Amino acid sequence: VTVHVNRYTYHFDNPEEAEKFAREMAKRLNMTVEIHGNTLKVE
């Protein structure tokens, strides 16, 4: 599972951890999480 935050890319083996990380980053940056299959984008 890949998480994109701005120009950074993070890889996770565990989808739940990836989503938790993405949501935490989105909250911190006041952004939203978009899910595209195995890719989560924080925008």
Rank of each mutant, 00 (worst) to 15 (best):
V1I: 13
V1T: 09
V1W: 15
V1Y: 15
V1E: 01
V1L: 07
V1M: 11
V3R: 01
V3C: 03
V3F: 01
V3A: 02
H4P: 01
H4Q: 12
H4K: 11
V5Q: 02
V5H: 04
V5P: 02
V5I: 13
V5Y: 08
N6H: 13
N6S: 10
N6D: 11
N6E: 10
N6K: 08
R7M: 11
Y8N: 11
Y8T: 12
Y8M: 13
Y8W: 12
T9D: 03
T9F: 09
T9V: 14
Y10K: 03
Y10I: 05
Y10Q: 02
Y10N: 00
Y10F: 12
H11S: 06
H11L: 09
H11Q: 07
H11F: 13
H11G: 02
H11C: 15
F12K: 00
F12E: 00
F12W: 02
F12P: 00
F12V: 00
D13M: 09
D13R: 06
D13F: 07
D13S: 10
D13G: 06
D13N: 10
D13W: 09
D13I: 09
N14L: 07
P15I: 15
P15V: 14
P15W: 15
E16T: 10
E17C: 13
E17W: 05
E17T: 08
E17K: 08
E17Y: 06
A18K: 00
E19K: 09
E19T: 09
K20W: 09
K20G: 05
K20V: 11
F21P: 00
F21D: 00
F21H: 01
R23W: 14
R23K: 09
R23Y: 13
R23H: 10
E24M: 14
E24K: 12
E24T: 09
M25K: 02
M25F: 05
A26W: 02
A26P: 01
A26F: 02
A26K: 03
K27R: 13
K27F: 11
R28M: 12
R28V: 08
L29A: 04
L29D: 03
L29N: 05
N30Y: 04
N30D: 06
N30M: 06
M31Y: 06
M31N: 03
T32C: 11
T32W: 05
T32E: 06
T32K: 13
T32F: 08
V33L: 08
V33K: 01
V33R: 00
V33C: 03
E34A: 14
E34Y: 14
E34D: 06
E34L: 14
I35C: 13
I35A: 08
I35R: 14
I35E: 04
G37E: 07
G37P: 05
G37Q: 06
N38P: 07
N38V: 04
T39L: 10
T39D: 09
T39G: 07
T39K: 08
T39A: 09
T39H: 12
L40H: 04
K41G: 05
K41F: 15
V42G: 05
E43Q: 14
E43P: 04
E43T: 15
